[in-house]
Simulated assay, not measured.
Amino acid sequence: MIALAPTAEAASAAPAARRAATYVVETSSDWSAVSAGWTGAGTPFQESAWLGAWYEALGARAGLTPLLVTARDAASGEVAVRLPLVLLREGRRRTIGFADLDLTDYNAPALGPAAPRDAQGAAALWKAIRKALPRADLVRFAKMPLTLRGRPNPLALLPNIQPCALNGNVVVTGEDWDGWRRGLEKTVRKELERSWRVFSREPETSFEIVTDPERARRIVDAMEHQQETRMREKGASYVLDDPDFARFYRTLIERSIEGGEVLVSALMAGDEVVASLLGIRDGETYVMIRISNAAGRWSNCSPGRLIIERTMAALHAEGYRSFDFSIGNYDYKRRFGVTPTPLVDFTESLGLAGIPATLRAAAAGGLRRYPELDRKLRGWIGRLRATKITS
């Protein structure tokens, strides 16, 4: 069975607060009205650079209303949490969730000095926030880390938290880059060395960290084309060609690449983009968010894995020691020796229309606490579907 830590029980065992906190809550639909005082981001996806680009590109999307929530300690006036949320209208159902739309890898509140650290305080905070929310049928908070820069995530202390189907994937290299590389499986290490030799033999090849916004935009344009081509060839749906999503990434790059918050790296052969990687810098951590490669004749040098390794090496030389491969459990991540980090979901119905989704979330989350049973059940369902298709 999977145990989520810190659990609500463990948090409630913390020393009792000197007084029971109460909170006052304000809401706004205007990012510009709250952005000036926005601090305390728990992950780079709650930093102003990310959220500003997100709300500008997607805040006017049909069926979506920005919902910025600020909760303060009623006695001191200090900020407890800020929540970057949206109200989504999906048919007749109205759902409150984070500013995400599957673009944000980790969702979380931004923490202030008055953020509660135990289950009792988290429950009081949520009670105040819930009263201030606009009319909706469902609250759905997904992909939340348990801790945020060493502090407990108050939303992860609430009752009915369930394991998320996704998890983070982190590599910590330590100070010795060569020592970390030697710790990789021999076949992986030798393949990376071979790939660099094969790539380097081609004319006009290079690796670069891009700092010019216009050049970064051209490389990301090539990334989008490569990703779309790859997905179409697999017969899979591709959603990142949505004009609003494309506008979000362009806005993010234009505003943040020169300041260093966003990083674009590339393997180039003359003017051809062989592989590219888009990521975010966060203290001593680098978070990868999009990757692509040209495949075809370049497949023999494994350009996807190579762009990751070259980028990690360059950033390690700058002082980066933690590399977050983000959500999605792909084979290439395991080859780099990632450590899974758990994420949690919170679902609560606010009206009758939200009850079915809440029950489904509870059932799915409960099953995930027993990974072996979950795996067997998924396998059985898959075989059942295959039987129906072939019969």
Rank of each mutant, 00 (worst) to 15 (best):
I2W: 08
T7Y: 02
S12P: 01
A14L: 13
P15F: 09
A16I: 05
A16Y: 05
A17R: 11
A21D: 07
T22F: 06
Y23F: 14
E26T: 12
D30P: 11
D30F: 06
W31K: 02
V34I: 06
W38M: 03
G40K: 10
G40R: 04
T43K: 07
P44I: 02
W50Y: 15
W54M: 07
Y55W: 12
E56D: 15
T65Y: 04
P66Y: 05
L67T: 03
V69R: 12
L88T: 06
G97K: 01
G97D: 02
G97H: 00
A99W: 04
D100R: 03
L101Y: 02
D105P: 00
P109D: 01
G112R: 05
R117H: 12
G121C: 06
K131Q: 13
L133A: 11
V139S: 06
P145T: 14
P145N: 13
T147E: 15
N153S: 13
P154W: 13
A165S: 15
T173G: 14
E175K: 15
W177M: 12
D178T: 14
W180Y: 15
W180T: 15
R181A: 15
R181P: 06
L184P: 13
E185I: 13
K186L: 15
K186M: 13
V188H: 15
S195T: 08
R197M: 05
V198E: 12
F199D: 01
E202N: 02
E202S: 09
E208F: 03
E214H: 05
R217I: 00
R218G: 08
Q226G: 00
G235S: 03
A236Q: 10
Y238Q: 04
P243Q: 06
D244H: 09
A246S: 13
L252A: 03
L252V: 02
E254F: 10
I257H: 07
V264R: 03
S265V: 11
S265M: 13
A266M: 02
A266H: 02
A266R: 06
M268H: 05
M268L: 11
A269I: 01
S276R: 08
S276F: 01
D282Q: 07
I289G: 00
R290P: 01
A294L: 08
A295H: 11
S302C: 02
S302R: 07
P303I: 00
R305M: 11
I308R: 00
I308A: 00
E309R: 11
T311S: 07
M312N: 03
A313N: 02
A317L: 11
G319V: 11
Y320R: 00
R321S: 07
S322Y: 01
S322A: 04
S322N: 06
D324G: 10
F336P: 00
V338W: 05
L343S: 03
V344S: 08
G351I: 05
L352S: 11
A353D: 08
T358R: 02
A361T: 12
A361G: 04
A361V: 07
A364W: 08
G366Q: 04
G366E: 04
L367I: 05
Y370L: 14
E372L: 11
L373E: 02
K376M: 10
K376C: 07
K376V: 09
W380M: 09
I381R: 10
I381Y: 08
K388A: 13
K388Q: 10
I389Y: 09
